[in-house]
Simulated scan of single mutants.
Amino acid sequence: MRNISDIIEGYLKAIIEEGQCGTIEIKRNEVAEKFQCVPSQINYVIKTRFTAERGYAVESKRGGGGYIRIFRVQANSRKELIEHILGGIQSGASYTMALDVVYRLIEEEVITERESKLILAAVDRRTIHQPLPDRDIMRARILQAMLLTLIYEQRN
């Protein structure tokens, strides 16, 4: 059974997909009222489900006429997408970041479900049995090697 965060995420993504420009502008209180939840639940969904690693940018304006604008960031090619992701994990990658990256690669049809499971197994905390921050640095290196391989494979 889906939880409220999944439902709100699905609703916001559906609105983004319906629009021509891949952007939505919402009022947090209005969305919270629609789903009969507290406004902080909307903040949580946006912060955790609409990240740069998942291919989104978010901006907000506070105050009476405030809004939250969510943009879907589209890469021109798979190579550009992978290079963008590589830039975001230069200094390390938490497991949550890795999940978001893999989620985006599946969504953009760069990798298969099977490949995603292999990547996530390789970067899991039980596999990289190191203390932080060494674990996040090692995880980023593994992801970088896999992503660079994907770029190389696309050229052939």
Score class of each variant (00 low, 15 high):
I46L: 03
V45Q: 03
I46Y: 02
I46V: 13
I46H: 10
G22I: 03
I4T: 15
I42A: 03
Y11K: 09
I46M: 07
E17N: 10
E17W: 14
N3F: 00
K27T: 11
I16M: 12
N43H: 02
G22E: 06
I46P: 03
I16Q: 10
Y44R: 10
Q36E: 13
T48M: 12
K47M: 10
Y11D: 04
I4Y: 06
P39T: 03
R2S: 10
Q20F: 06
N43P: 00
I15T: 10
G10D: 09
L12H: 10
N29E: 13
I26Q: 08
E25V: 02
K13N: 07
N43D: 12
R2N: 09
F35P: 04
T23L: 11
C21K: 06
R2L: 08
N43I: 02
K34P: 01
N43V: 04
K27V: 13
V31A: 06
V45H: 04
E17K: 11
E33I: 04
P39V: 02
I46T: 06
K47Y: 02
K13W: 03
A14Q: 09
Q41R: 09
L12E: 14
V38D: 07
G19S: 15
Y44E: 09
L12F: 07
Q20L: 07
E33P: 02
S5E: 08
T23V: 14
S40P: 00
N3G: 02
I16G: 04
Q36L: 05
C21S: 14
S5Q: 08
E9G: 01
S40M: 06
G22F: 02
I7G: 00
K47L: 08
P39G: 05
F35E: 08
F35Y: 12
N29Q: 13
I4F: 11
V38I: 11
V45P: 10
K27H: 10
I8V: 07
Y44I: 03
K13I: 07
T23R: 09
S40N: 15
V31M: 14
I16L: 15
I8N: 11
I4C: 02
G22N: 07
N29H: 14
N3C: 00
E30G: 04
I46C: 05
I26Y: 08
K13F: 05
I8F: 10
C37N: 10
Q36G: 03
C21G: 04
K34E: 03
E30H: 13
E17D: 15
E30A: 08
I8L: 05
T48K: 06
S40E: 13
E9M: 04
Q20H: 05
Y11E: 15
Q20K: 15
L12C: 05
F35L: 06
T48I: 01
K13Y: 07
K47W: 00
I8S: 05
E33W: 03
K13D: 02
A14K: 12
N29I: 12
N3R: 00
R2G: 00
A14Y: 08
A14E: 15
I42Y: 03
I15H: 15
L12V: 04
A14F: 09
E9C: 03
I24C: 09
G19C: 07
I26T: 11
S5W: 01
I15R: 10
R2T: 03
I26E: 08
I7E: 06
E30M: 12
P39A: 07
N43T: 05
D6M: 02
L12T: 08
Y11N: 11
K13G: 02
E33G: 14
